[in-house]
Amino acid sequence: MINQEVIFLSIITLSLLSLLFLLLLYLLTRKFYDIKKRRKIENYKNKIYPKVLSIIAEGDLVRGISFEKKVLKQKAIEELLSKYVKILEGEEEKKRLSELATLWLEDYYRKRLKSKRWSQRMNALYHIEDFHMVKLIDDVVLLSSKKNITHQETIHILRILASFQFSGLKDLLPNQYHYLSRYDYRSILTRLEHGLFDQFVLTFHKSPTPFKYAILDVISVKRAKEYCVFTENVFSTYQGELKLRALKALAEIGYVKDIEPCLEMLHSSKWQERMVAAKLIGSIKEEKGIPRLIELLHDQTWWVRSQAGQSIRQFPNGKAILQKVLETSKDAYARDMAWDWLHKGV
């Protein structure tokens, strides 16, 4: 009985050792193949990079590069162009790089957009955007209609279409993608140029709430003064979070046509509204708001006090006002805040 157990254990041990040996052999073979592949890619990059750099930087004719559409060579081209796209600043250079990418990698990415592998599709999307390969816009739109794509792919597709100023986005986004979050919408809308963004502003009142938030956020981030009248209209028409976001946008823009409704917000029962209104008064340097800003230095909410101090500091005589509060106020919190903003940046 003992001999049988020993034989059985010996067989299992030998089997495991054999499997481990085969696994090690596979890993070594794979490692050797990867090293060989990497060496080929690097050798090809070293061979062509002077010519590629000359084409991008100086606009030389695309000749002298014998380019076969083989995967390893296409990978080398991709890596080389990815390196340059991160450091280029001139529009002409970016345009030439985009033309090279289209010439050499268009078919390469078109195939990968049709791949069943998520990683290949995402990789293709990232490079299509980086290289601004507008010729592949129809293929990107086609991918958006596939049922098996992930949420991450969907968002990146919409960002690409926005970056390429795809006119169909004005119908595609609100009709087929009305379920997206404010963050998703904002990441898409920030890529739009003025003309296409206008189309979404025109449909603001019919849009879902997260979409409205995103539009106001974009106006705020871009400090788009051309939408000041629109933003004031939203501020006066809506309540709650939309009113607050419109006020934030006006504070970032730094301009309002009618200051009186904004001055009223300094007396709001909601601390967030008092804070943002205080920011607006400081950004436009509206002297009518100074007495109330001084009162807000005594507010029960730290954020309101801090913003009031910052806004006062933005006025030409702001330091003198803060100094007076520091010397005369009986409120320790107000004095502390006045002292803080007097010494900011000192």
Results as ranks from 00 to 15, higher is better:
Q165M: 05
R292P: 02
H205C: 08
K31R: 15
E286S: 02
H205G: 09
S283V: 03
L173Q: 02
V218M: 09
R121A: 05
E99C: 05
M275P: 04
I321R: 00
L247G: 01
H151I: 12
L326A: 05
Y33S: 14
L342C: 03
H178M: 06
H156I: 06
L280G: 00
F164D: 09
K135S: 15
L17P: 03
M265R: 04
L297R: 00
S98G: 03
R96D: 02
Q176C: 09
A162T: 02
I321E: 01
Y33H: 14
Q239T: 12
R112V: 10
L296E: 04
L23G: 11
Y84S: 12
D184E: 13
L16T: 11
V62R: 08
D331T: 02
Q165H: 08
K248N: 12
Y33L: 14
V134Y: 10
E232Y: 05
T13W: 09
L16K: 05
M337S: 04
T301S: 14
F197H: 05
V85C: 08
S269I: 13
A57E: 15
S207T: 12
A277I: 04
S10W: 10
E92M: 11
K51P: 07
S144P: 07
L342P: 03
I12H: 10
F230M: 05
K225F: 13
A251H: 00
M275K: 15
S236M: 13
N317S: 11
Q152H: 12
L72Q: 10
F200N: 04
Y179D: 14
Q323D: 08
I281Q: 01
E260A: 10
Q314F: 05
L80F: 01
S18L: 15
T190S: 13
L342T: 01
L143Q: 01
S163I: 02
L113Q: 07
L23S: 15
K212F: 06
P174H: 02
E129T: 07
E129P: 04
D171K: 15
H156M: 09
K70I: 14
L28I: 10
L16D: 08
L24I: 12
H298W: 04
L136C: 07
A249R: 00
K95E: 13
